[in-house]
Amino acid sequence: MPEVIFTGPAGRLEGRLQPSSDRRAPLAIVLHPHPHFGGTMNNQIIYNLFYMFKERNFTVLRFNFRGVGRSQGEFDHGAGELADAASALDWLQAIHPEARGCWIAGFSFGAWIGMQLLMRRPEVEGFISVAPPANLHDFSFLAPCPSSGLIVHGDRDRVALPKDTQTLVDKLKTQKGIVIDHTIVPGANHFFEGQVDELLGICSGYLDRRLAEKENAA
Rank of each mutant, 00 (worst) to 15 (best):
F6W: 14
G8L: 00
G8F: 06
P9E: 02
G11M: 01
R12Q: 05
L13H: 04
L13W: 11
L13P: 15
S20L: 14
S21N: 14
A25C: 12
A25K: 06
P26Y: 10
V30F: 04
V30D: 01
V30I: 13
P33E: 05
P33T: 02
H34C: 07
F37I: 09
G39V: 03
G39R: 00
G39Y: 00
M41Y: 12
M41T: 01
M41W: 02
Q44S: 12
I46H: 08
N48H: 09
Y51H: 11
F53Y: 12
K54F: 13
K54H: 10
E55W: 05
R56A: 01
N57T: 02
T59P: 12
T59H: 11
L61W: 08
R62S: 10
N64A: 10
N64L: 06
R66Q: 01
R66V: 07
R70Y: 07
Q72R: 07
E74M: 14
D76K: 13
D76M: 15
H77G: 13
H77Y: 15
A79Y: 15
G80T: 10
E81P: 15
L82H: 12
A85I: 11
A85E: 10
A88I: 10
L89T: 08
W91P: 15
Q93Y: 08
Q93V: 05
A94S: 02
E98I: 11
A99M: 05
A99I: 03
R100F: 11
C102Q: 06
W103H: 12
I104P: 12
A105S: 11
G110K: 03
A111M: 04
W112I: 04
G114V: 02
G114M: 04
L117T: 14
R121A: 07
E123D: 14
V124C: 07
F127E: 00
F127K: 04
I128F: 02
S129D: 13
V130M: 03
V130T: 08
V130C: 04
V130K: 01
A131Q: 08
P132Y: 01
L136E: 02
L136G: 07
H137Y: 04
D138A: 05
F139M: 12
F139L: 03
L142H: 13
A143T: 14
P146C: 05
S147N: 04
L150R: 01
L150S: 00
I151C: 11
I151M: 00
H153K: 02
H153D: 03
R156D: 00
V159P: 09
P162D: 07
P162E: 09
K163R: 15
K163V: 14
K163T: 15
V169Y: 09
D170T: 07
D170M: 10
T174S: 15
T174R: 13
K176C: 10
K176M: 11
G177N: 14
I178S: 10
I178T: 14
D181L: 03
V185K: 02
V185T: 09
P186V: 03
H190I: 03
L200S: 06
C203T: 00
S204I: 08
Y206V: 01
Y206M: 01
D208W: 03
R209D: 14
R209A: 05
R210F: 06
E213Y: 13
A217E: 09
